[in-house]
Amino acid sequence: MGWTSRMGAGMALALALGGLAACAEDSTAASTPTPSATSTAAPATAGLTVKDPWIKAADTGMTAAFGTLVNGGTTDVTIVSAAASVSPMMELHETTMVNGAMQMQPKQGGFTIPAGGEHVLEPGGDHIMMMGLTTPVKAGDEITVTLTLGDGTTVPFTAVGKPYTGAQESYAPGAHGSAMPEMTGMPSAGAHS
């Protein structure tokens, strides 16, 4: 398989990322989320749930959240950002093959889940990137993550920290025009081609 695996460099860069504010949308993702979806949920979002959510356990730097986004409603739902208290900088990422290596980059327009459909977030595929961890995500921790939808409503879910050492992807250099340096050490991939 052609994945780049540069764990050592990645860990160092991951620490540096905490202070990096290259992406405009990241600062909004870090703002305090609306506490609950229940009071604000519009009909379009009533059906969005997250099945089997988990976060790769990590003490510092970067990690990611995975699970299956299930849209039980009758209209399409778009997730535009995600937030959690443990990470000030979260992005919605996709993973693509670039020059024979798997690289991740922000997903333009966010994740759209069709009415009645599912969208899988998994190592080696789409995921919710969590950078500059301010608090460790320990194995077995339960972490609340809040998704913000296109219409501004929020959907919180609880993900469990899991030990995971799957293969690595690297961050696409210069993704969405920012001066983002190449990041490696992404906790990702696995038995995914």
Binding site: K56, G140, V160, K162, G190
Partner: peptide, 28 residues
Amino acid sequence: ALARMMRLLSDDAARLTRGEAPLADTER
């Protein structure tokens, strides 16, 4: 930490005994 450990291991066991892959199973 024991509580966190048993939460993880119990969830793995519950899924495995149903014939389902646990979360983050690389050999699902």
